[in-house]
């Protein structure tokens, strides 16, 4: 095979020679010279400023009932807060822990049950014919409408945790199954044909084509799933929980501890964002091969 030369490898090794520090500095400089970070900072700052002006500075009616950033910040950073929740109190972290722990359990069960179900539904028509209608009938019912039924299902059998986790599980489960199924359906027919040509048996097709092929969609589904699971969990906690960030929000409202409401809301935002980010990063690293659409 000498008539055709293979391209030399030299160009790729040259790129690796540029030190990664120089590259990072270059990127940093690029980023700093763009308007985007400054505008972004301005956007967030104006939001906080507006909040401050409306609630605490100008005492605009209706707004003045809400806690302002100063009050929230003082409470949040105080070693002995008036209402018992700040970065120094273990109670704060306990609530965070409980919410996270519940979401993780819901996420675990939803993935373990949802991904295989979605894979089979996407792969085998028969399976889908039996499973899909049931799912499509149950899915339009908002997860939170299940609250009473969830309580009844687990009454006397499991702890009070079970209904709350079940609700988060339901939300995540539907998102996972649907996206996984779509993922399998999105796999180009040609890969199945190639696999058949190469002599694959069904289990090969499942593990070597169906599963890896659906992986991008599975991760999208997990990301969405975590989001809706988190959303449902907070609502469930507000309605019927003890401990947890959702519970904290409702409880502090009932007890008129308004700054704590804001603290809890913002914490929810940060933690929720963190979850999605982690899944996104894990997904990206597992799927290096999907950077560019292959052809």
């Amino acid at each position: 095979m000498t008539a055709i030369e293979t391209p030399s490898q030299s160009r790729t090794t040259q790129a690796a020679d540029i030190s990664s520090l120089a590259l990072t500095l270059f990127r940093l400089r690029q980023w700093l010279t763009q308007p985007s970070p400054y505008l972004g900072f301005l956007g967030v700052a104006s939001l906080v400023l507006a909040w401050y002006l409306l609630t605490e500075f100008f005492n605009v009616p209706r707004f003045n009932k809400l806690p302002g950033p100063v009050a929230v910040w003082q409470e949040f950073t105080s070693p002995s807060p008036t209402f018992g929740i700040s970065i120094y109190t273990p109670a704060y972290y306990m609530h965070i822990f409980w919410s996270i722990w519940r979401v993780l359990q819901a996420f675990f069960w939803a993935t373990i049950l949802g991904v295989p179900l979605g894979l089979f539904m996407g792969w085998k028509r028969t399976f889908r014919d039996y499973a899909f209608p049931v799912l499509e009938i149950v899915r339009p019912i908002p997860v939170l409408a299940w609250v009473p039924v969830a309580i009844l299902i687990f009454a006397g059998i499991a702890s009070r945790e079970a209904p709350v986790i079940f609700l988060a599980f339901l939300a995540t489960f539907f998102a996972t199954v649907l996206n996984t199924m779509l993922g399998v359906e999105s796999i180009d027919e040609v890969y199945f044909r190639a696999a058949r040509c190469l002599g694959s048996k069904p289990r090969h097709v499942f593990f070597r084509v169906v599963l890896p092929g659906a992986l991008p969609y599975i991760f999208t589904g997990l990301q969405i799933g975590v989001g809706v699971g988190w959303f449902s969990l907070v609502a469930a906690e507000m309605i019927s929980g003890e401990y947890g960030l959702g519970f904290l929000i409702w409880d502090s409202y009932v007890l008129s501890q308004f700054p704590v409401i804001i603290i809890a809301m913002l914490t929810l935002g940060v933690v929720g964002y963190g979850f999605s980010a982690i899944i996104r990063i894990v997904g990206a690293s597992l799927m290096r091969w999907a950077d560019r659409s292959g052809a």
Binding site: V190, R193, R208, P212, W289, A290, A295
Partner: peptide, 10 residues
């Protein structure tokens, strides 16, 4: 195949 069918994930 026409547009190639190398498994992108392998």
């Amino acid at each position: 195949f026409q547009n190639g069918a190398l498994f992108p994930w392998s």
